[in-house]
Design a binder for these strands. Structure first.
Lengths: 218, 218
DNA sequence: CGCAGCGGGAATGTCTACGATCGTGTCGAC
DNA sequence: GTCGACACGATCGTAGACATTCCCGCTGCG
């Protein structure tokens, strides 16, 4: 995809996609003129996008020194995941209380797809389904504020999440955790859903903490 | 007219202060030229501030239609407080685990000041100490991500929080809750601190929900 | 050989002007 | 009297030009 410059989507969205997609690597400098040319817009639009993504935590701006793609350390990734645990516990609880029958059925199907993906060794597909599951749970909760915050946190740690998905045996470990979450939500047990979601993300924190001790570089 | 233009603080900070301080009322239109003149800066700086506060959730921008001070409904205020409950529970737990002796002493002093404020009927002062306590707890936790998110959520619902503080008898109800939080933190009991903080904010949610049912206007 | 001062170049910060878009008031027809 | 079309005014969106700041390499001196 070569990129026919599409004037529809805003510069901020395109820049966000490029950062999350890894096109612009962490620590990479973001020069306004270059981005303006790249997206076929003026510097003003790029500046606005930079300000927006700065407050979102995706880029870092220093006065008179320019912007860079924010580098998130393992320590920060741990904090982000801990915050997610608190918020996603809340939305899991709400999803258990408020999801419609159709939504519960969809969640069950999602889990089955994830099981199939693990058996067939489709790691990339599993990772996609993983993100979908978390997103759908947030939507089922009808909790807009939490949903928005979670989406932001997920974006911030996207790089680490991606690395995590590629770890051997990780899917086998997280699948039963996801099943526990969905089971609780489908059963309408808010307490269990909250606990299961926290347990899941706590296990992610454990892996990250292990990386931190090993001094794994980003 | 008034206002010696102070070039030091950024336009975004001054605009944020004016919104939080109630100088610019919810729903009020934010015209770029007017703000530029008010703060003695160019329209560019105002635009950047508007974009920033938009992603922070304090202002609402519509394409080609201008910006307004975001009106947050009671429903949103409830969601915000629920999210705060999840995140502040986390920081309270961390504060209990990580606070230094000096910090624990300071928290104790804060509670004593709050008790004195309630006895002397200093509602405004109590409200200030309230904010300070929550802020200090977040700082003690050394959890930058959660601290940042909480600060943002608190700003978003600032208007409702302010109204809450003026409710008769509210201080008498929340003071023991605050004391329970501080006691748990000082004692180093993370579980209790988490539970106490959630109980406190759940009680705030109850009041807001009551307002919602009464159809209280902002 | 090391370091302080200095100048070139690049990128950001700000301002101003122009074009696009929307809300509103007016006028005319039915 | 009411409704719709038109035109005007106001405001946002974008682009470009100018001023400012900072980094880095160079030069000259100790």
């Amino acid at each position: 995809m070569g990129a026919a410059p599409d004037g529809r989507t805003s510069a901020a969205d395109r820049l966000r996609d490029d950062i999350l997609g890894g096109v612009l690597p962490p620590g990479g400098r973001l020069i306004e003129v270059q981005l303006a040319e790249r997206y076929g817009v003026g510097r003003s639009a790029v500046r606005a996008a930079l300000v927006e993504l700065d407050t979102e935590g995706l880029v870092q701006r220093e006065a008179n020194r320019g912007a860079t793609v924010r580098r998130v350390s393992v320590i920060e990734a741990i904090e982000i995941t801990e915050a997610r645990a608190a918020l996603e516990g809340l939305v899991a609880r709400r999803a258990a209380e408020r999801a419609t029958d159709a939504e519960r059925a969809e969640l069950r199907e999602l889990i089955e797809s994830m099981e199939a993906a693990v058996e067939s060794g489709g790691l990339a597909h599993y990772s996609t389904l993983n993100r979908t599951l978390h997103r759908r749970l947030a939507e089922c909760s009808r909790h807009e504020i939490a949903e928005e915050l979670i989406a932001n946190l997920r974006n911030r740690a996207a790089h680490h999440q991606f690395r995590l998905a590629t770890v051997a045996g990780r899917a086998g470990e997280s699948l039963p955790q996801h099943r526990a979450i969905v089971d609780a939500v489908v059963a309408g047990d808010g307490d269990a859903a909250d606990a299961a979601m926290r347990a899941h993300l706590d296990s992610v924190v454990s892996v990250l903490r292990h990386w931190g001790e090993l001094g794994v570089s980003v």
